[in-house]
Design a protein around this nucleic acid. Sequence first.
DNA 1: TCTATTGGTTGGAGCGCTCTAATGCTGTAG
DNA 2: CTACAGCATTAGAGCGCTCCAACCAATAGA
Lengths: 370, 370
Amino acid sequence: MVRPTMEDVALRAGVSRALVSLVMRNSPKVSEARRAAVLKAAEELGYSPHAMARSLASRTSTVLGVMVSDLHNAFFAEVVDGIDEVAREQGFDIIINTGGRSPARERRALESLLSFRPAGLILLSPVVPATAISKAAEQLPIVLVARSSRVSTVDTINDDGEQGARLAVDHLVSLGHKRIAHLDGGEGTQAGPRRRGYVTAMEAHGLVPQVVSSEYTDAAGARAIRRLISDGTLPTAILSCNDFNAVGAISALEDAGLRVPADVSVVGYDNTSLAALRHVSLTTIDQPRAEFGRLAALALLQRVRDGRTEPVRHLLNPSLVVRNTTAPPATSRRSSGSPLLPAAEGDSAGSGSRTADFQAKSPERRSRDH
Amino acid sequence: MVRPTMEDVALRAGVSRALVSLVMRNSPKVSEARRAAVLKAAEELGYSPHAMARSLASRTSTVLGVMVSDLHNAFFAEVVDGIDEVAREQGFDIIINTGGRSPARERRALESLLSFRPAGLILLSPVVPATAISKAAEQLPIVLVARSSRVSTVDTINDDGEQGARLAVDHLVSLGHKRIAHLDGGEGTQAGPRRRGYVTAMEAHGLVPQVVSSEYTDAAGARAIRRLISDGTLPTAILSCNDFNAVGAISALEDAGLRVPADVSVVGYDNTSLAALRHVSLTTIDQPRAEFGRLAALALLQRVRDGRTEPVRHLLNPSLVVRNTTAPPATSRRSSGSPLLPAAEGDSAGSGSRTADFQAKSPERRSRDH
DNA sequence: TCTATTGGTTGGAGCGCTCTAATGCTGTAG
DNA sequence: CTACAGCATTAGAGCGCTCCAACCAATAGA
């Protein structure tokens, strides 16, 4: 249970502690003979450097702290993948902490992360107040992902929610839809831009926006649909604020005897793994999540190593992923057939395209070389 | 960008550095007057202790390292919640790292975690070789979750996969099913116990086991079903190795014109959030995930603080969650109607029960008090 | 009055490392 | 043969903290 120190390695290799230190940081100014001797001794003792002592002595850190607001959300997992990729290739380690979307827990997580004096911090969609962020930004570089900020000391990486919503509306309009409702994300992060994008896109097409208040959950999506049906204001297409909401909307539609996409088209937002399931096969808006992570890590490293001080604001382009929940509106194919009647049986074309999309998105296989 | 040190606080409060240290660790042997003065000075300077220096000096750590093999899997998020809960309440912090289910990355993550010299390590379903684990176990206490080990220095927390599979089989048998296939998890973690449990439960009921080789993905579930259909060996009920596999199976069944659960019942395993979606509403086996985390943290702390040395092996009981993908077999209701014909339209009872279950499992609401 | 005792406080060593400046050691030029 | 690079190596201070032993009243006991 006791790890050897540099001193032990030095003793065994018959050199000084400082020389071991140089070898460990693979300095070029060490003779090959000594280097080999030191590495051999280290190997034999099972020595590996003590990151904390190193960081304390050097007054620098090779650690990037990442606060994930919600570990349950796979969205963040992919962002972390991107961060990890860049960090690793630049010789940095990452440590993760989570705030569970509670401001109190997040604050604690932030404190905990700060106490390790990392080189910088990446906050993924944090819910802590802006003051807490700018206070932390006085101590180290901070990058915000999926949350905006006007503080000049922090960088931000966001997707262009307005553009994403516009893509969805354009797609639906091109299919022939005229009545398209937006199930709004309310207080949720990024709900604002998506709503604005929806409204302006609708108006650009000369259509009347119909914003329905909802939330980022499948229950909320279902509720919103039931409300629309009972009000008699159900449109031919729905743009949900995210994929969960969309899946809830689809269930409620099917429960009401309506078919998706035959009677109503539904578009999600986020392209979560949920959307890609062949059982769901949801048309949705994809955000370049891994790219978020890569850019965040890069931005942080620019501040840490290159001493950049002007803030960076990235606004990434989302893209449309067409799957099987969107189709031309029923009225444009048939005159006025009751939308409550199930469509004809055996739509093998539909299931065929599902399979096709699924294959395209199929998971990477394990490489046999590893 | 430069944080104050204890020295600064001591100077400002007019006391020694050692006294500040005592206050920071809220030692009882400090007079109230001094304590107040120190806290005031610390507050004014925005001081907070340097965790690394503290850990270095005290040769102890209040950090628990957690390696999550796959951040994309929400299963682990709930385990982390449990760990976090216990750790926090015992005054420990957690740092997380991820291995992305690649042995090489996991090894690196392990190294990174170890370099912080945490008090102990919790590995969630790691894929690194057992030797790497037992080597790490020489340096600090280790708890394994969802992976077994015979090394006497590591504790393990697992679910009883045999029992879970038995629960599923019993449920299906009680509904009247006689032909029940198991879509096997192959190499996957915990696939073995589940398969064994399935086989023994079937035999206990005097039924013939039908193990179909598959994997932990929805694509694999769909493939297995297509194979069964083309072989003409499709049973009346399916026990999948996990929820993803089950969802893939359901899609393939529906694509083939079969209805779930009217024609074929499907049971998943894991009770992921996916299963709870009203659109999926999957009957499945629940594992007490947060409990995994709590027990893991507890076990670790017992070793860290109480010096326990005998290994602990927890085997937790899974439970059955009945939703809407299981029902009595078609043959027990109708004589021999072709299972390829869709069932009667408008089964409002089915959608009704979906809603009921969904409400019961509905997410916690945000408390207005916060 | 002198010595114990107690509770609060402090200096200093040291945790495992890095970093600077100094050291020793060649080899080559003067 | 001395001087001076130039290079590999090392002693030693110090990072921010903890911990131990010592210290210093102030009170209690003899």
